[in-house]
Amino acid sequence: MAFVIDAMDILHEGKIDCFCIAAGDGDCTMPARRIREVKLTVPGYGERKTPEVPVASCREFRYSGQQQGVEP
């Protein structure tokens, strides 16, 4: 519950353009969808066992242990 309240507070402050979610369960699904509704980027990060619904709610999803180049 606290996660959702904090996320919506941050969202409505209007000071960010990206909201990264690191989770391995469906608790992030509704906040991610809501944040995407206001056209903010929502990347996700979690384990391979993360269910498809929260993965699909993010713009892109990276799995822990996945080797990908990241620019500074």
Rank of each mutant, 00 (worst) to 15 (best):
C18I: 08
R36V: 04
G69I: 13
L40N: 01
E60F: 09
F61L: 09
S57T: 06
R59C: 10
P31F: 08
I35K: 00
L11R: 03
T50W: 01
I16C: 05
E37R: 07
G24W: 03
G65V: 01
Q68H: 15
V53P: 07
T41P: 04
P72F: 11
A56F: 06
Q66S: 12
P31K: 04
V4H: 12
A56T: 09
P54D: 05
S57L: 04
Y45P: 02
A7G: 08
P54W: 01
D17Q: 08
D27F: 07
Y63R: 06
V53T: 08
M1T: 12
P54Q: 04
F3L: 09
D17S: 13
P54N: 06
R59K: 15
E60R: 13
R62G: 07
A7K: 06
S57P: 03
P72L: 09
I16S: 05
Q67N: 09
I21W: 02
G44S: 03
T50V: 06
C28I: 06
Q67M: 07
G14N: 03
C18H: 05
E13P: 01
F61R: 04
G65A: 05
I5W: 13
F19L: 08
I21S: 01
F3A: 13
P51E: 06
A32V: 03
G46C: 07
E71P: 06
S64L: 15
D25Q: 09
I10D: 08
